[in-house]
Simulated assay, not measured.
Amino acid sequence: MENLKEILAGCRNKDRKSQEKLYRQFYPVLFALCRNFFEDKHDILTAINNGMLKVFQNMDQYDSGKGEFFSWMYTIVRNAALTLLRDRKTQTFEYDEIDDRMGFESGSNPFDQLAAGDIHIYLLQLPVATRRICGLHYIDGFSIKEIAEALNISDGTVKWHLSESRTRLRRIFEKSL
């Protein structure tokens, strides 16, 4: 396989073959990322393609001195998925607004003891909305406030989904013992 630096140089020169190589190289991990946001394969591919288009269009803005290329690209694709999610008017689920006075507490990260490969399997067992919020908070490190703003929901709703994810994952973990 070609060196990533060579592929990135080709992408900067708008070389289609280099762009295809870059897309294919990172497709599996980007698919897994976007699968946390969407159930439908079409939506997953739309998010990946929107994100990679932005990567290709902004390739000259990537600065290797500021961090790894993968992190830069991952962030762009994740933001593209969030944008698509936010812009969708006909979603198959709704976030029920939860009152802040309901007292849901944020506990420890339920994924601390798991291997990276196991996490995705457990997340797929959660409802879509809860899985998205759980992944954004525990895996991607977004704060409750950042998630609420990105998804245009209240902080209390985010807290409820985090509490719900811990409750459901606890049941799943107990069954697997």
Rank of each mutant, 00 (worst) to 15 (best):
F111Q: 08
R88A: 13
F69R: 06
I147T: 01
V55S: 04
L53W: 00
G67H: 06
K145N: 09
T130V: 14
S108L: 15
T46Q: 14
A32R: 11
R88I: 03
R132Q: 13
R101K: 15
G65L: 12
R86P: 07
F31K: 10
D96L: 14
D87C: 09
P28C: 04
Q25D: 05
T83S: 09
G51T: 09
Q125L: 08
D63Q: 13
L53I: 09
E149K: 10
D40G: 01
Y62Q: 03
S106E: 15
A148P: 03
V29M: 09
N49G: 04
P28Y: 03
C34S: 06
D118H: 10
R24G: 00
I98Q: 13
Q113A: 12
Y27I: 02
L53T: 14
T75W: 05
K54P: 08
Y74H: 12
F26I: 11
M73H: 03
I144L: 05
F93G: 08
K21Q: 12
L22N: 02
L30P: 02
M59W: 03
I133H: 07
L84P: 03
Q125Y: 00
L85M: 08
W72M: 02
E39R: 14
V128I: 13
C134K: 02
M102F: 13
R88S: 15
F38M: 05
G103H: 11
A47Q: 04
R132M: 14
R101N: 13
K21S: 08
F38E: 02
C134D: 08
S108I: 15
P28F: 01
K89Q: 15
S64G: 11
D118T: 08
F111A: 11
R131I: 02
D87G: 14
A32V: 06
A81R: 07
L126F: 04
S106N: 15
A129Y: 08
I98G: 07
L85Y: 15
F142D: 01
S108W: 13
T83K: 14
Q61P: 04
A148H: 01
M102Y: 12
L124T: 08
L136W: 01
G103V: 10
Y74C: 00
F38A: 04
N49Q: 14
E94I: 15
G103F: 10
E97A: 15
S18V: 00
Q25S: 12
R131P: 07
T130G: 04
S64V: 06
R132K: 10
V128D: 11
D96S: 12
Y122T: 00
K54H: 11
S64Q: 13
Y74K: 12
F93H: 11
A148W: 00
F38W: 04
L82F: 02
S106T: 15
F38K: 01
T75K: 14
A115M: 11
Y23C: 02
I76F: 05
P110R: 08
R131G: 05
H137M: 05
V55P: 06
K41W: 05
A80K: 06
N79M: 07
R101I: 14
F38N: 02
G51N: 08
F69W: 05
